[in-house]
Nucleic acid binder design. Structure first.
Lengths: 226, 226
DNA sequence: ACCTGAACACCGTTCAAGT
DNA sequence: ACCTGAACACCGTTCAAGT
């Protein structure tokens, strides 16, 4: 009898790292980081909690893998951009949007610096900084500033979204409440915060985010030769 | 009999919000966010876990209170600065240093936007941006960019510190390991990351941080009148 | 008013035992 | 090689009962 040429295919519903990651993303999107539980996950995958550990090392590992799946897709699908500046803006906006759609990604990324998801972002940004003419010896500093800013904004937005979710109000009501609290602060101690409370109430996170990117890009632009 | 003029003083070792916060900071400094536990805390304070809930609402509340104590002190003690730019730098560096000394602060702050600790920072930065001549209607955007950047860097550093702690290596060994991993990435896919791996190995977090602040300040500087 | 500490309803992770 | 599920060692939070 010849060796079997028909490979026994995996049971279609058998576990795999990818299926676990996919189910994790669904749980995270549904109910935030608190919703990602080995018990909830194993129930959704019709298995036991122990089975998951055959495919992933631990929860931190799982969170990074979920972030990476989401970030990789965002980086692959973002527009090219006519100039390096436009390309950086496109990358940044793609990241903003993905962190907005999956609020858990921001805080997960913040806890995994230097890991694969961050490396993908650094690569994309770095190539554009090169094209922009940032000198070799300041490229790390430049990309690091952009990355920190992007992750910082993502983290804040994630926290705002989660806060609003827990309190059961929508995002703009939540901003409104914060704005009210700010305008009732002691005028002697917090004059500035009071004065921007109104701006804060109606501000646009996405526009503010892009304004910060432009500030950084302006600082990075090559000096005009004369 | 006249009313007692001697107020019965609190038992010196009785619980209070301040004492709980103080003990929390010690636990957090010792063993990170995982070390802050109601059981560990109540043991250190020689009481039961339930007693703590008389003084604080929950763990999130406690973490914000601990951050606020640490941030308030940093904001009070930071130098004045001769120019608005110098003052912003001084504020930023004070925050960098306090997040470096207490690595849990960065991630705690990232999860509490708009709360008191962040408000303190916004006030301090905002006053300087006014002095810098940033127009009223862009002051929120400007302060928000600075804050996001500062918290972003703080979060990254916190994660690096915690990573190194868990792995039991020191920080620079940890950066070295990451740098090695980066230089072994696929050259076709990650040319930029490979090229900055050496810069990354020897980079100075504090200097990089300040460089980012300067980039933002440069973008915010008033155009030179001619 | 403030504290006690057992109890509740969860966690992540491990591991002997199965197939 | 991969999966099962009970068990372990924890959590944050609550609450009747005390003082």
């Amino acid at each position: 009898m010849p060796p079997k040429t028909q490979r026994t295919p995996r049971r279609e519903d058998s576990l795999s790292r990818d299926r676990i990651v996919e189910a994790s993303i669904a749980l995270l999107d549904n109910s935030g980081e608190a919703g990602l539980t080995f018990r909830a996950l194993s129930e959704r995958l019709a298995t036991g909690p122990g089975a998951l550990y055959w495919h992933i090392a631990n929860k931190h590992d799982l969170l990074i893998a979920a972030s990476d799946a989401v970030i990789a897709q965002a980086m692959d699908s973002c527009a090219a951009g006519e100039t390096p500046q436009a390309a950086v803006r496109a990358i940044a906006l793609a990241l903003f949007d993905v962190m907005d759609a999956h609020p858990w990604v921001g805080s997960a990324l913040a806890r995994a610096p230097g890991q694969l998801p961050a490396v993908r972002i650094v690569e994309r940004l770095g190539q554009q900084l090169r094209a922009l003419g940032v000198p070799d010896d300041t490229q790390w500093t430049a990309v690091s500033a952009l990355l920190s800013y992007i992750l910082g904004v993502g983290g804040q937005n994630a926290a705002n979204a989660q806060f609003a979710r827990v309190q059961g109000v929508n995002r703009s009501d939540f901003l409104g409440e914060l704005s009210n609290a700010w305008s009732q602060l002691d005028p002697a101690q917090y004059p500035f915060v009071r004065s921007v409370a109104e701006q804060f109430r109606t501000h646009d996170d996405r526009a503010d985010f892009l304004a910060g990117i432009d500030l950084l890009l302006k600082g990075l632009a090559p000096r005009r030769s004369r």
